[in-house]
Design a protein around this nucleic acid. Structure first.
Lengths: 102, 102
DNA sequence: GCATTGATTAGCCAAAATGCTAAATGAAGC
DNA sequence: GCTTCATTTAGCATTTTGGCTAATCAATGC
């Protein structure tokens, strides 16, 4: 993954987790290993199409992967993508500022 | 910090870092240790008031702290707040799903 | 093939975010 | 006290996001 791709990935990940419902979806799917779209929609207050859109945002961000299984759609967390965010946070641990670059 | 406060903190942090300009501000201020509002505004493409608002968002999220110094305003990164995000991410490393909770 | 079930897409409206310019604030200097 | 410099606040237009309902698609069962 080149630098530009990584920046785009970071951007979509940060946008994706900006919404509390999407963070909750991510955590719920992670805890249960995998869930169908219906299971997920059933657990959240929003209308089904609303949740469906949240799922698409998470999928486009690469945080969820999905495959058909009969007529259901099964979602799982792709842990790799969270790594991009972890790397970004790590910048703030590395490079301790020399107390006066001025 | 109780659970509710932590959730609110996470929410404001995630919202704050959702915008690329704010991530860049945060990283830039971190690298240089501390910067005045003018320094920051000077380095970014946006109009000064726009950057000023981004600074306020970051400050309200607790990611930046700020104090007056003469007629300038000096900003620094508050690293503690990023910890909240780190803790959230850590949830996805803990609790490996037992491959079939169904 | 036709109905049913699981899920998405289309389209709409309201609310929030983001950018700008112009005006206001606050500290310093004369 | 008036000016100047550093910055913020106010107010507005535009874009994006997030919610809904209604319509559609896709797989299964009869």
């Amino acid at each position: 993954m080149d630098a530009k791709a990584k920046l785009e990935a970071l951007d979509s990940v940060c946008s994706a987790i900006a919404h509390p419902a999407r963070r909750q979806i991510l955590l719920t799917v992670h805890m249960r290993g995998s869930m169908t779209a219906g299971d997920i929609a059933g657990r959240f207050a929003h209308a089904w199409p609303t949740t469906s859109r949240h799922l698409r945002v998470l999928e486009h961000a690469g945080l969820l992967v999905q495959h058909r299984e009969g007529r259901q759609r099964v979602y799982e967390v792709d842990h790799a993508r969270l790594g991009v965010l972890g790397e970004w946070i790590a910048w703030f641990s590395r490079d301790p500022p020399p107390t006066g670059v001025e």
